[in-house]
Amino acid sequence: MAEEAAASGPLPVVSFLKIPDGGDPYLEGQRCGDCGAIFLGERSICSNCGVRENLKPQKLADTGVLYVYSIVHRSFPGIEVPFVSAVVDLDGGGTVKGNLINVEPTPEKVRMGMPVEVVYRIAPTKDRDGNEYLSYYFQPREK
């Protein structure tokens, strides 16, 4: 089983990262047709307005702005630090959290409101069965 999965390419790190056959990966939200709230991951009921069965998948943008961040210097054992934990508002809706890369992890270099883009890379760790995972990251975007 593990070998089959590994052979067919990386697995998505989270359920809302989609890897189409022969296409580019993207992040997918679920938009409520009644109130417009956007969720990450499959669901059938909107927790904002309570409406059922009116959530539709929506491809999220690969560009956005850095809403807030923290520079993490201490994490759980085995996690490489420092890194920038970033909350990004994607253009057109949806807020996603991830690592901000390709920027020096200092408050002088990381600026709230800076334009960022979503990039996709193979995660540095594999799971117990040897499967590779595709993850998403943010990096600064030239305006």
């Binding site: 790190v13 989270v14 993490v72 994490s75 759980f76 996690i79 490489e80 630090v81 890194f83 934990s85 970033a86 909350v87 959290k97 991830g98 690592n99 995660a123 540095p124 760790t125 594999k126 799971d127 995972y133 993850s135 998403y136």
Partner: peptide
């Protein structure tokens, strides 16, 4: 896999 340090 662990999301810590990967997805913030």
């Amino acid at each position: 896999i662990s999301k810590e340090g990967l997805l913030g």
